[in-house]
């Protein structure tokens, strides 16, 4: 039986608006196991990114709770497992513009407390694995969109998190590059035994996940 790496129960979130609270998530529950991939599809404004932020601990839900498996600590609140239990891949890559590809990946390990030399070695190995062995010292401005996303994937994986949360990882890429990134993401996540939660509006990419959900009006339902 695969290990439970993420458990969300009864998540609810509403944003304030002039017309009163605007519910975005309503009683969302989800369980994700090691090695599996889960896609969450929905139209723009359906609350996909908000859900991902609740799952990853970037925001607090109004109700409900999330637990994530942090290596060595068991299931903990996502806020305390940031960088260790959970890794993020964003639509706009979100790389530090002043750092090289190698430094960007190593930064995530340094923040998690890995010594500089070990962090750099792990970052180098991952960048080679995602096909950027020849671009280690390039700044993000000198990389293509696809290359930047590869760096972002390597950064998300460098601390060996149990869950990768990917928010529209192909949203800024052309179709071919998007497909390559999906291949890479599914491949490396599976290689490392991590779980992947993929938020996308693309039916095609969503179909490639092992389990599929649709978020409509704040309610998560199996696709």
């Amino acid at each position: 039986m695969p290990e439970l790496v993420l458990q969300a129960r009864g998540l609810a979130k509403a944003f304030a608006s002039p017309a009163g609270p605007l519910p975005v998530l309503t009683d969302v529950s989800l369980e994700v196991f090691a090695g599996e991939s889960v896609s969450i599809r929905g139209s723009s404004g359906s609350g996909k990114t908000t859900l991902l932020q609740q799952l990853g601990g970037l925001d607090q839900p109004d109700a409900g709770e999330v637990r994530i498996l942090a290596p060595g600590s068991g299931l903990v609140a996502p806020r305390t497992s940031l960088g260790r239990g959970v890794g993020f891949v964003f639509q706009n890559y979100q790389l530090m513009p002043e750092l090289t590809a190698l430094e960007n990946v190593a930064l995530a390990a340094r923040i998690a407390g890995v010594p500089a030399l070990s962090a750099t070695a792990a970052a180098r190995a991952l960048l080679v694995q995602v096909g950027l062995g020849a671009r280690l010292e390039h700044l993000p401005a000198k990389l293509s969109g696809g290359e930047c996303q590869r760096v972002a994937i390597a950064r998300a994986l460098v601390n060996r998190p149990s869950v990768i949360l990917a928010d529209e990882p192909t949203g800024n890429l052309d179709e071919r590059t998007g497909a390559e990134i999906m291949d890479l993401l599914l491949g490396v996540v599976a290689d490392r035994g991590a779980a992947l939660i993929l938020v996308t509006h693309s039916r095609e990419f969503a179909e490639r996940a092992g389990r599929r959900f649709v978020l409509t009006a704040g309610v998560l339902t199996p696709a």
Binding site: L58, Q94, I111
Partner: peptide, 11 residues
């Protein structure tokens, strides 16, 4: 945005 990313990385 970078501040948010640093938080997401566990800073």
């Amino acid at each position: 945005r970078e501040v948010g990313v640093l938080a997401a990385l566990g800073a």
